[in-house]
Amino acid sequence: MKILVCVKRVIDYNVRVQINRQGDGVITDGVKMSVNPFDEIAVEEALQIRDRGDADEIVAVSIGTSASQQQLRTALAMGADRAILVESDDEIQPLAAARVFHKLVEKEQPGLVFLGKQAIDDDSNQTGQMLAALWQRPQATSASSFELNGETARVTREVDAGLEIIDIDLPAVVTVDLRLNEPRFVKMPDIMKAKRKPLETIALSELGIDAPPALETKNYEPPPQRQAGIMVETVDELIAALRDRGVL
């Protein structure tokens, strides 16, 4: 079985994101970029399935500028077998990304597609579900445990009420949550080895995809800040203050 893993290049999660002067975007010049952390978990899960002998090829795929090759190289260094970059200089929104991945799925015929449940830049949490809809296959979102049983898989999903367990027939789309696994650290020799692994580049225009309706985004603003309140010295003072406010 082949597994496709989708990887997005995002601003590193440790970076304090800054809005640009025009207020029409965030500053990315000179900012550290990384693999979306949820996508790293997706790569790790695919690798573990291959390591158990249940998959024979892991293909990492991404959409973006040529700079996204860096993130695909990270996936290759983690252990993916080969990579595909669909190159575009335009902003790719979730529905457009899902259409691209659907094209790749038709070409590659994987048994499973893993993605992070959301990217930490736009926080949309949409692409996996949209891909599953276009492909007309099952989706298991926010997975915290994954167990392959031949042609089906049992997935535990993190839902607001607790843990939901579903069975899905393969092929299927799985989006992963934080608790699924801990991604491995990449070692220097793996980085060297990754440089020799195949990374194919396809221009987005070559795929013949209809551009879907797109959202227009403007007015980038910082969130409203809460003002610091007062420090109290004792429990009695705290209780009095809360009673005064009418919240006790």
Binding site: Q93, P94, L95, A98, D123, S124, N125, Q126, T127, G128, Q129, M130, L131, A132, A133, L134, Q139, T141, S142, R157, E158, V159, D160, P212, P213, A214, L215
Partner: peptide, 23 residues
Amino acid sequence: STTFGKDVLPRVAALLGAPQVSD
């Protein structure tokens, strides 16, 4: 925008060929 809505609505949007506004 709970785990229920986050799961189902993008699937609806894709079927409708529409983008989704999350949150």
